[in-house]
Each structure stands twice: as C-alpha cells, then as structure tokens.
C-alpha cells in the first residue's frame, strides 16, 4: 500500500478541518472497508484521520422519544441495544445479518452507511470502473452482474449499496447528523445516498470533509412490528442478493400503514414508496403484497452477464417482500 500520514485528532471539529483541508485525506472509522481498499489500491490517501474513538459511542433518548445513535456506536452494540430491539427490531435484525461478529465489533454507525460497493470491478484496479476512475467505463455492463442493481442503475454504473443497516435506516425515516467545515446540518437518511446517473463516483450527497456524527431515529410505533429479511447465496457472511426491511400496521385485516425498503438491488438503500402507497389501506392478502411489489418493480431492469445475469432478482424480491409482509401480518394477528 501507498505510505500515508496518520492522524488521531482530539475532537470531531479538528478531524473535519484535517480532512476538509486536504483533498487526499480520508476518515477512518472501524476500518472494515477502508483497510481492504488501502491494500487493494482502491483507495490511496495521503492522510488517514482516525475518528472512530472521538465520535459519540452512546445511544441517547431525546425529548420526544427520538433515539440518537452516536456515529461511533459499534454495529454489535447497536444491534444489542434493548431499545433498538424493542422499538426497531428491523434495525437489530439488519445489523445482525451483516458481515461477521468480528466485523460488527469494529464497524461503526457512521461508517456503515458510507461503505463502498463490493462490485468486483470496483474492487479490482485492473478493470475499468466509473466509480473508481470517472470516465473509464463500467465493467459490470456486460460483466458479472449477479450482485448488481435492477433498480435505478445507469449505463455508467450497476453497483449496489452493500449495507444491511442502511436498508433498515431508510425504512425507519432516520435522519443523519453531519458535521462539515461550515457547521452542523441534518439530512434525511433517504436523501444521503444518490443514484449513479452520470456521476457514480459520488455515493452520497456528502461533501469532502463532511463527517456523520449521529443518526437519529424518530419515534415510529409501527416499527415495533418490523422485520429484515435478507436473501443471500449462503446462510451467513454474504451480501444480500435481495433484502427487505418492512414494518406494517394492520387493523381488521387492512394494512393501515407501512414502511418498506429494499437492499441489494440499487445504488442506494431503496425506499419503496410506491409499494407503501399500494399497501396503505389495502387488505393484508397475497394479492396486495404482490401488487405492492409489482408497483415498485415496474421500472426494474435486469442486467445480463456471463453467469446468467440478475433477472432472477425481480421475482425473488417480489416473493421476498410477500413473505416478509405475510410474516409480519401473521405476527400482528397473534
């Protein structure tokens, strides 16, 4: 790896100043993704600024019931938190379905949503990749696309966002607190990530030097009945082929409210607003679940490839959404 300078500043503001002042600087959180990139040459920073230990590592309950999760909270601690498990089981389940115990002990709440795609072409510096090297081309187009997007992709990038936690956050109307060179601001979690369009090198709307300091979870009573269903190629320790984060409220056999997000199918954790609109006010039946999936997947576009492509993700996601909703409704009936 390329030699780099390493700094461990005293506070978040100093860390932001360090990175903002150097275009070749990066933040280091838990290091579960960046360290790989340093070895592979995917990232070659001049300056690495360690922030995992100086960010808030606690979960506090604000007036009004919002849970404020410090960006330094490790994934395993967040998954185990009693309030999270009771109020937002979808989030706990999503976290526990990701990576391995060792990685979850390292990965942070702030770093997790900022991890980069695991697209094999992005991670291999010998193959063209618009995300890694803008304008070089997208090797996934016509390449191995089993793990690539069917929603919201562009001809410039077929990558998917790899995080499970982020899918749950997208469903839960979470908000992201960001410290930048010009101070603090808050953005909706669903506005954090962006579709690739013509600039896939930008994963998120954050500017260089912006640091996530916390993620807020506003109260969401229906999330007490929520679930994360991850479908993957082996029983554990694999990224999602598709995943569903869902919460539903059912009264007298009718879905009164719902939150749905998809993982493994887009450049962003995909909040399924169209599916939610179909679900709200509809009877809790197989037909409804499938109509919701169909509404969301109407614009889905599979990619082909030497391994048969990823067209299977569309029926798989449809079936997985139905199974997840069915399970929640069953749970609700108990």
């Amino acid at each position: 790896m390329k030699p780099f300078e390493y700094r461990s500043p005293a506070d978040a503001a100093a860390a932001v100043r360090s990175v903002a002042g150097n275009p070749a600087a990066v933040f280091l959180g838990g290091g579960t993704n960046l360290v790989d990139h340093l070895k592979l040459g995917v990232a070659a920073p001049d300056l690495v600024v360690h922030v995992a230990d100086l960010l808030p590592a606690g979960i506090e309950e604000l007036d009004g019931g919002t849970l404020r999760i410090g960006a330094g909270v490790r994934n395993s601690d967040l998954a185990a938190d009693r309030r999270v498990r009771e109020r937002f089981p979808v989030l706990s389940q999503a976290l526990l379905s990701g990576a391995s115990g060792q990685l979850r002990n390292m990965a942070t709440t702030g770093g997790n949503p900022l991890q980069r795609t695991r697209c094999v072409y992005f991670q291999d510096v010998t193959t063209p990749c618009n995300k890694r090297q803008p304008g070089s081309g997208c090797s996934a187009v016509g390449g191995w696309t089993r793990h690539h997007a069917v929603l919201g992709a562009s001809e410039h990038c077929l990558a998917v966002h790899p995080s499970d936690m982020a899918v749950a956050m997208a469903a839960l109307d979470a908000r992201v607190r960001v410290l930048g060179p010009d101070g603090e601001r808050t953005i909706p979690f669903t506005g954090l990530h962006r579709l690739p369009a013509g600039t896939p090198e930008r994963d998120t709307v954050l500017e260089h030097g912006d640091l996530i300091t916390a993620i807020d979870l506003p109260p969401l009573p229906l999330a007490r009945r929520s679930a994360y269903r991850k479908v993957r190629d082996r029983a554990s320790y694999a990224f999602a082929l598709v995943s569903v984060a869902a919460a539903v409220e059912v009264r007298d056999g009718v879905i009164t409210d719902a939150r749905v997000a998809f993982g493994g199918v887009a450049h962003v954790p995909w909040r399924a607003h169209r599916a939610e609109r179909v679900l709200r006010g509809a009877p809790a039946t197989e037909e409804t679940y499938r109509a919701a999936a169909d509404a969301e997947l109407a614009d889905a576009r599979p990619a082909d490839g030497p391994d048969g492509g990823n067209a299977f993700k569309i029926p798989l996601l449809r079936r997985t959404l139905a199974a997840t909703l069915r399970g929640l409704v069953r749970e609700d009936a108990r």
Partner: peptide, 24 residues
C-alpha cells in the same frame, strides 16, 4: 466466475468466491 472479456476470475477473493460458511 471467469469474465470472458478480460480472461480472469472476477470473484477472486473469499468474500465473492463463496465456500460453505459455518452456518451452511
């Protein structure tokens, strides 16, 4: 998975070349 356009195995690490994990 060999990408015939490049001639190399593209899933060349243990994150992408799956072997059975404990849970399997």
């Amino acid at each position: 998975v060999l990408d015939p356009r490049t001639g190399h195995v593209v899933n060349h690490d243990l994150a992408d070349y799956h072997i059975a994990a404990n849970a399997d």
